[in-house]
């Protein structure tokens, strides 16, 4: 295997891990209450701006930005749940779509208004430069993002399957009325899910900001990938999002390198459609 191909593979895996991380919040919310959060990409965008402000005002890197962004985004998620989602959930599907879509526009144009349309960027060497391992170059910021992404996604999965809070959340996801009869408050669990999902998105945004550009429209670009990742992995499946994220990252990089950059989306979406053809529930989704 040529060195370049190995470089492409590693780059693809690290990229895919990040895709998985920012998709896990989306899949968690869907799994909990069958709501598609169209504002998801814009949550990531807000977190990226928080990381930018943390650097600009406090001079801090991602390790300072992550907890701040996680807390602020979790708060935003919980507010969004109580102020908006809880109400639109009672309405028809269209109300949910338009509700979260409206939230997306509000956040996006709020940032346009606050920060202007200009692109921002964090300094290149905020996270320890680039490692050179036998000719394979690995950017510290991407390595950090990729590793943390895998750890956090697995942690989220374990939390849901191995803890009492997780069981309660899954119970609400399974049957909110039955869970309520067992003494679990569905709205509290759903609020926790929103807080958790948005908090994870906060961490994802703070990490992505270290190697990506920051602009009010960046959420649009990222959201498409999140939706593809989540539906390929299976709506509601955390491990599915991880597998699908890694898969998309690698396929995208390989096809971009071997066939050509303009064709990489064709390859990704062809595989995406083929998978959904045979497994409409996604790779790891339940029937």
């Amino acid at each position: 295997m040529s060195m370049s191909l190995l470089q492409v593979l590693i780059g693809g895996l690290l990229l895919g891990a990040v895709y998985a991380l920012f998709s896990s919040g989306l899949t968690l919310i869907w799994g909990m209450m069958n709501v598609v959060n169209f504002a998801h990409g814009d949550f990531v965008m807000i977190a990226m701006y928080i990381a930018f402000m943390v650097w600009k005002l406090l001079g801090g890197g991602p390790f300072m930005a992550m907890p701040i962004a996680a807390m602020l985004l979790a708060t935003l998620g919980i507010i969004a749940y109580f102020a908006l989602v809880r109400h639109v959930m009672k309405g028809p599907m269209l109300a949910q779509i338009l509700g979260t879509f409206g939230l997306a526009l509000l956040l996006r144009y709020g940032m346009f208004w606050t920060f202007g349309a200009n692109f921002q960027s964090l300094p290149e060497n905020l996270v320890g430069g680039t490692y050179d391992l036998w000719g394979i170059r690995i950017q510290a910021s991407r390595l950090l993002a990729g590793t943390l992404a895998i750890i956090l996604t697995i942690a989220l999965h374990l939390m849901l399957t191995r803890t009492s809070l997780g069981s309660k959340m899954l119970a609400v996801a399974e049957d909110a009325t039955a869970a309520q009869l067992m003494g679990i408050r569905p709205d509290r669990m759903q609020a926790i899910a929103w807080g958790l999902a948005a908090g994870l998105t906060g961490i994802a945004g703070a990490l992505i900001a270290t190697f990506f550009y920051i602009s009010p429209t960046v959420g649009e670009t990222l959201a498409i990938i999140a939706f593809v990742t989540v539906s390929l992995g299976g709506f509601g499946s955390i491990t599915g999002a991880l597998v699908a994220g890694l898969l998309i990252g690698v396929i995208e990089s390989l096809s971009g390198y071997l066939i050509g950059a303009v064709y990489k989306d064709i390859v990704v979406y062809t595989i995406f459609i083929a998978v959904l053809w045979f497994r409409p529930q996604g790779l790891m989704g339940k029937n």
């Binding site: 370049s4 990938i225 950059a261 303009v262």
Partner: peptide, 19 residues
């Protein structure tokens, strides 16, 4: 190397150039 401007990642293009 033509590519889509909305892309999230350009590693593969840069590697093609490097090659």
């Amino acid at each position: 190397i033509p590519y889509s401007a909305n892309t999230t990642d350009v590693q593969s293009q840069v590697l093609q150039l490097k090659d």
